[in-house]
């Protein structure tokens, strides 16, 4: 999944989507994931990075990442431009 290219991110976890005018707030780990997504990393790579950095098991990361992606898409923060 790809994150919208034009969203604004700040260190405080504030996320602004200029195309809709909506703003959001995310926790530090959510911010980290969005930053990885912006760098174009694959889901697998992101999971690997999280697993290396945090005290957590693989199943939990997989489940939580899926949930987070669902939320990003529900909040219309993702766009798969290629497919469209």
């Amino acid at each position: 999944m790809e994150i919208k290219k034009n969203i604004a991110l700040s260190d405080t976890g504030f996320v602004f989507d200029p195309s809709t005018g909506n703003s959001f707030s995310t926790n530090p780990i959510g911010l980290e994931i969005i930053q990885y997504m912006r760098q174009g990393l694959s889901d697998g790579k992101i999971q690997e990075l999280i697993l290396n950095r945090y005290e957590v098991d693989k199943n939990t990361v997989e489940k939580d990442m899926e949930d987070f992606m669902t939320m990003l898409s529900k909040l219309k923060l993702t766009g798969s431009y290629e497919k469209d």
């Binding site: 604004a8 700040s10 405080t12 976890g13 504030f14 602004f16 703003s23 707030s25």
Partner: peptide, 11 residues
């Protein structure tokens, strides 16, 4: 400015 809204919203 959005910065101000961001600041009150997050901090």
């Amino acid at each position: 400015d959005l910065k101000e809204f961001e600041k009150i919203s997050t901090s």
